[in-house]
């Protein structure tokens, strides 16, 4: 299984590009898509899922150009858009039956998959309730279930954990990890720990351009020795923020413990700590912004 993008771009107006000149190749496994708001993540996902047409470039699924043959990817696709709707007067089971029919499953397979996915997403008790009565988190879980209903070879999920409580978020990560071994999964999120916990590679987008596509370790390694923690008086926090990239703060009785990314030790008492993917992401975006 292989998803390949060559020179993909989407122009919304003269001089306004959603994404631009993106070259990307994804094999089996989970691939995180990171980037600030407006970086073009959702646009890229809409192009991959054939919901939007690229202005330039091509997308290939197993070597087939999906612009010319969209069915090549639609046949094997599971897609959870960032903002999606449901038919509110259908029950969870009925809605999944509808999606299964759209995805071409027969009744027996659909029934079995729906049964299992309702259990997997912890929706069994609400299976016969109308979707209009669902909370945001429950609705999001229905979205996740529908994306998996056809056992997709290519799973594209855009901000899947938005609206989920911490327990369900961890649960979703586990679902993703347990089902990702034999498919290509593209996961876009602002929640870096979700990617850190699941992704085998990370693609970083900013202002519509692909900054890097690498494995999380390599991204983190680039920030090695540049992350420090130390305690500052509360009044000095503003100065620290102005001078350094602050990736975290913890309130303490004697001040504020700050976690900063800096090329040199920011204070004599600062301790170098092991960077996380979030540190690496912030560092990379900051450096690109400065450049």
């Amino acid at each position: 299984m292989n998803l390949r993008l060559t020179n993909v771009g989407k122009r919304y107006a003269e001089g306004v590009w959603g994404v631009r000149e993106v070259d990307l190749e994804l094999e089996q496994g989970i691939h995180g898509l990171l980037g600030p708001n407006g970086a073009g993540k959702s646009t890229l996902m809409r192009i991959i899922t054939t919901v939007a047409e690229p202005t330039t470039g091509n997308t290939y699924w197993n070597g087939t150009d999906t612009g010319e043959t969209p069915a090549a990817v639609r046949d094997v696709l599971g897609y959870l858009p960032q903002q999606f709707g449901v038919y509110p007067d259908l029950t969870a089971t009925e809605f999944l039956e509808y999606i299964a029919a759209l995805r071409g499953l027969d009744r027996e397979t659909a029934d079995a998959r729906i049964e299992e996915l309702l259990a997997l997403t912890n929706l069994q008790q609400a299976r016969d309730d109308r979707l209009r009565t669902f909370s945001g988190g429950m609705r999001q879980r229905v979205g996740i279930a529908q994306a998996l209903v056809n056992d997709p070879e290519l799973l594209v999920v855009d901000e899947p954990t938005v609206g989920l409580d911490p327990e369900e978020r961890v649960r979703f990560r586990n679902v993703l990890s347990s089902t990702a071994s034999d498919r290509v999964v593209l996961l876009s999120t602002h929640i870096v720990p979700d990617i850190e916990a699941t992704a085998t590679t990370v693609a970083l987008l900013e202002e519509g351009e692909l900054v890097t596509h690498t494995d999380p370790e390599s991204l983190v390694e680039a920030t090695d020795g540049k992350v420090y923690e130390y305690v500052v008086p509360r009044d000095d926090l503003g100065d620290v923020r102005r001078e350094y990239q602050v990736s975290g703060t913890v309130q303490r009785a004697d001040g504020v413990s700050v976690r900063v990314i800096a090329d040199e030790r920011p204070a004599p008492d600062a301790t170098a700590v092991t960077p996380t993917l979030e540190d690496a992401y912030l560092d990379r975006i900051e450096r690109r912004g400065a450049a």
Partner: peptide, 25 residues
């Protein structure tokens, strides 16, 4: 009912994604 844990999930594999046809839709 028993809530299934993800790591013990065994989902029915889909072998034919064109079996549904127009009638079901």
């Amino acid at each position: 009912e028993t809530v299934r844990r993800p790591n013990e999930a065994t989902l029915t594999p889909v072998t034919d994604r064109s079996a549904g046809g127009f009638g079901r839709l």
